[in-house]
């Protein structure tokens, strides 16, 4: 399988990455090299093989529903690009 330039632009949008027209050529070329490598998988016989998500087939642990985190809002907001009154600021979303 290979990917065309117009699909690269679409994937970039899905991944929330701005991509300039100058970058598209080289990016398409590099990603196609990777997809070409990955295509070797198609030759593998995987009938009746269950996909493996965790090497030890562990499952998510449950824990008691109790509060363990302490409030560190100031600590987290101190490293934010823009905050005001305890809120994170972004450009206006709704007029």
């Amino acid at each position: 399988m290979s990917i065309e330039q117009k699909d690269i632009a679409k994937v970039a949008t899905l991944a929330r990455l701005a991509i300039s027209t100058e970058e598209i050529d080289d990016t398409t070329d590099r990603i196609n090299k990777v997809l070409n490598l990955v295509d070797q998988l198609q030759a593998a016989d995987t009938d009746s093989i269950a996909p493996m998500a965790h090497p030890l087939d562990a499952v998510q642990r449950l824990r008691a529903d109790s509060v363990t985190e302490t409030n560190n809002r100031d600590g987290f907001q101190a490293i934010a690009p823009a905050t005001e009154d305890g809120l994170y600021l972004v450009p206006k979303v709704i007029d």
């Binding site: 399988m1 990955v38 998988l41 198609q42 593998a44 995987t46 093989i49 996909p51 493996m52 090497p55």
Partner: peptide, 15 residues
Amino acid sequence: DAYYKKAQQVRRLIK
């Protein structure tokens, strides 16, 4: 299916 699921199946074969 063609990529992610296939790769996770191959992962089991490798294990």
